[in-house]
Every structure is written in structure tokens, then in C-alpha cells.
Amino acid sequence: MQVPDVFEYERASSVDDAIALLEKHGDEARLIAGGHSLLPMMKLRLAVPEVLIDINDLEGLDHIRIDGDEIAIGAMVRHAALLESALLAEHYPIFADAERVIADPLVRNRGTIGGSFCQGDPAEDLASVGTALRGSAVIRSSAGERTVPIREFHQGPYETAVGDAEMLVELRFPIRTHIGSAYAKVERRVGDWAVAAAGAFVQLDGDQIADVGIGLTAVGADGFTCPEAEDLLRGGPATPERFADAAQLCHDLCAPVTDQRGPEDYKRHLARELTRRVLHRATARARGEES
């Protein structure tokens, strides 16, 4: 029987209340949303918070909407809602690609986008999606809000830009035109963490790549991405040869480690092959050739 160590339970009634509770209890307090990453870690005693602050009652954090020239997603949006969102399907099918292979439908009913980002697991699929899309994270404290690029949000395994007495409240993604996006993952069994995965968006200007973003999951890629591969593609033609060259850079520059999910060279192979595939699919979607 797996049981977490003892802790105090508090239930926040608003974002301000949650932040006040974080300030009151100090750095041994943790917010709990869906709990599907935190509770397993607490059962294994890898996480031993002294106080849990339940934020499931908070209102105003479950939106997926257009806000100016960005799509704004509240931190408490559940995985199931991301998977089913028509707005995201229209602008960024990469979300549904990724959500379809995150855990299972029951876990997706509980887990949240904010929780996924704040957990900061190196194998977290949404971290790569956010990195590929070059979104931003809105973090609130009692002093106000600040916005951090997602590419600066993850500072190491299980470490994020969210400080003590701060709360991630929203993720924002720029709306782009003439684009396609895609995510592909290899897992040992349905619902598992990735052996490796890749995500990308491609923005076309005719046959040229106007802009591109790449995200790499679970392969030790610095910042979940490969800027060298993006630089190689940007401004050039969208051809299979260039996709292969960019994918080779991802293969060469990532730093996977051999573990129970697979050997290092296999993960490099996957980083290359999955990057190639998502660049193809994102481009096909940008051209309207694939849904």
C-alpha cells in the first residue's frame, strides 16, 4: 500500500487566496490541481510537501479562448478539454496529437495543463508542445503578474520558473497564419511516458519556411528543443531533404540517456525519425493536404 507522508490540507477559494496560503506556509507548501503527477510522487516519498493547497475550486482558470493575437489557456484546463477543443484543433492540431497519447482518458479527466508544466518532468509531452510553439507562461504572485517565455520556463528536471508563493495561471500561444503543426511519440505501451517524441509547427510563405518551431521530448535536448535545426530550416524551401538535414541535427545534438525505456542510440534514432515525420505532417497541414 502506497501512502503519502503526513501533510496539512488547505483548500483555496481563489487565485489570491491560493497565493496567500503559499505565502503563509512557505516553501514546503505545494499546490495540487489534478494531482496525477504529484500524488504518485508523494506516494513514493519523492515529494514530501508539508502542506497541500487544493486549487480545484478556483474559477476563471479553465478557459481556452482567443485573446488579442494569442490563444490563452487557463492553467486548470484538463487534458480532456485540450483534446476536445475545436479552437485548438483549428489553430494547433499539435495539441490533439499530443493529448491523444498522454496517459489514458481517465487520467486526462483529472490532469491539467498547468500541472503538467509545473511538474517539469523531462518526458512531459506538453512541455515540448509549448516549446515548439514558443508560447509564454503567465505567473502570478501577490506583487502582480509576470510573463515568461516557455523556452525559459523549464530550468531543469522538475525545476521551473515558478518561484515560492507564485502560481502559474495561464499559457499563451501566438496565433500564426499559413501554418501547420504536429506531434509524434513512441511509447512502450499505450499511456506510458515517451521513449522519445517530437513536435513541430511550420509556417509557410509560398514554398519557403517563414518560421518553424521544434520540440523534443525525453531525449535530453537542451530546453526541449534544437535551435540549430530551426535555424537551418527557417528561410529555406520546405523540402524532404532539408527536413532530413534538420532531423539529423536533432539526432546529433540531443543528449538522451540509456534507461529502462531504451538505449541511447535508439532514442537518437527516434529523435531524428520523429522530427522528420512531424515536419512533414506540419507542412502537409499548412498546405491543407492533411487534416
Binding site: 500500500m1 502506497q2 483548500r11 495540487i32 500524488l39 506516494k43 480545484n56 482518458p105 487520467v107 483529472r110
Partner: peptide
């Protein structure tokens, strides 16, 4: 399984099917 894999503990909370080994009783209050 106690690890939100097997699903035999599935029940509904506010109309959503969830794995009750990975929800605190306090959270269902």
C-alpha cells in the same frame, strides 16, 4: 495497482470518471 494505471478503482466525481487511487478523499469533499 495504486499507481493510476489499472483503473479498477474508477468511480465518478462530479460526473467525471476518475481513478480514485490518485484522488485524496479531502479533494472529493
Amino acid at each position: 495497482c495504486d499507481t493510476s494505471n489499472c483503473g479498477t478503482c474508477t468511480l465518478w466525481v462530479d460526473g467525471e470518471a476518475v481513478k480514485s487511487c490518485t484522488v485524496l478523499a479531502a479533494m472529493a469533499g
